[in-house]
Simulated assay, not measured.
Amino acid sequence: MRLLVLGDVVGRAGRTAVATHLPRLVERWSVDFVAINGENAAGGFGITEEIAQGLLDAGADVITTGNHVWDQREALVFIARQPRLLRPINFPPGTPGRGATMVTARNGARVFVANVMGRVFMEALDDPVRLVEAALEQHAIGSEVDAAILDVHAEATSEKQVFGHLFDGRVSLVCGTHTHCPTADHRVLPGGTAFITDLGMCGAYDSVIGMEKEEPMRRMVERVPGQRMGPATGPATLCGVAVETDDATGLARWIAPLRVGGDLEGAVPPGWQERS
Rank of each mutant, 00 (worst) to 15 (best):
E212I: 01
P235S: 08
D198Y: 12
E123K: 13
A232T: 02
W70T: 01
A100M: 01
L76C: 04
N37T: 06
R228E: 08
R119Q: 11
D206K: 14
S276M: 06
T65V: 10
L55S: 04
M122Q: 12
A105S: 14
C202I: 14
D168P: 05
A105G: 12
E27A: 13
I196G: 09
T48M: 08
V69I: 15
V174P: 05
G14F: 10
R106G: 02
E133A: 10
L173Y: 04
V243F: 10
D146H: 15
I36Y: 03
L251F: 05
L56D: 01
F121S: 10
P225N: 06
V69E: 03
P88K: 02
T65N: 13
T64Y: 03
A147T: 08
V208S: 00
D32Q: 02
N67D: 15
V69F: 14
G66F: 12
Q273T: 13
G250M: 09
I255H: 10
G250H: 04
G230A: 10
E215Q: 15
S276W: 02
H21T: 05
T179M: 03
P88R: 05
H178S: 05
T95R: 06
V221I: 15
G59R: 07
A236G: 09
P225I: 07
P93G: 00
K160M: 11
E159Q: 02
A75R: 13
A80G: 02
V129D: 03
D151L: 12
M201N: 12
R130Q: 14
G108W: 09
R84T: 14
R223A: 14
E49G: 13
W70H: 09
H165W: 15
S143Q: 12
E74Y: 01
A194D: 07
F121T: 07
G226I: 08
A135Y: 04
G44D: 11
R275L: 06
V208W: 00
F163I: 09
A242V: 03
A147K: 10
P83E: 06
L76G: 11
Y205C: 11
A35K: 02
R259G: 08
F45L: 09
A242E: 07
D146N: 14
A58D: 05
F163Q: 08
Q138F: 03
P88G: 05
N115R: 00
D247V: 11
V243T: 04
R2E: 04
E137R: 15
L6Y: 06
A105C: 11
T20Q: 13
D71C: 05
I196T: 14
D185L: 11
G44Y: 04
H21M: 05
A242T: 11
E123P: 01
H165M: 08
A236W: 07
A100S: 09
R253Y: 04
M102E: 14
S276P: 14
E27D: 13
T48C: 01
E123M: 12
D247L: 14
S207R: 10
G203I: 15
W254N: 06
I79A: 05
S30P: 00
E50M: 01
E133N: 13
V26I: 15
E214W: 09
F33P: 05
V152H: 03
N90F: 09
R15P: 08
A204Y: 11
P216M: 05
R110G: 09
L238K: 04
T48F: 03
E137D: 13
G11L: 12
M217G: 00
V69A: 13
L55W: 12
L131D: 07
G250Y: 09
A242M: 07
A140S: 09
M220T: 00
W272Q: 06
